[in-house]
């Protein structure tokens, strides 16, 4: 199953800690982080990005309670449960934010191609 997913992947954005791929065959985005792959439908990918950016880093850093050291994301659309430390969160925000910029550029490029074709 994993191999099948991997054949049509286009790399969108990559850092030393993980990457985002797009699969044009299944119309999914795939997040690779900490050795794990998670596939998202576009709607869910946007939702997931929002959730990761909604994590309060300031609270994680300043709150001394132990539960504040970890953010838990359990989106119902994936089987994965994300337990994120502060550095995980920062890394994921960089990956997802970078991917968002590239995807936005792709949209701009596509629309201008249509306009000038």
């Amino acid at each position: 199953m994993q191999a099948k997913i991997n054949t049509h992947l286009i790399e969108i954005f990559k850092t030393e800690f993980g990457s985002i791929y797009q699969c044009d065959q299944t119309n999914h985005f795939i997040l690779e982080y900490a050795g794990r792959f998670t596939a998202f439908k576009p709607t869910n990918f946007i939702d997931f990005t929002k959730r990761v950016f909604a994590i309060n880093l300031h609270d994680m850093a300043s709150n001394t309670a132990r539960h504040a050291d970890i953010a838990i994301l359990m989106p119902l659309y994936t089987e994965t449960c994300f337990l994120l430390t502060m550095s995980d969160t920062i890394r994921l925000q960089r990956i997802l934010g970078g991917a968002k910029t590239i995807l936005h550029l792709n949209t701009l490029l596509k629309t201008s191609q249509l306009q000038f074709a």
Binding site: Q22, D24, P42, I46, N106
Partner: peptide, 9 residues
């Protein structure tokens, strides 16, 4: 490369 976000909405 498809524009998956635009295909969605």
């Amino acid at each position: 490369m498809k524009d998956l976000l635009r295909l969605r909405t």
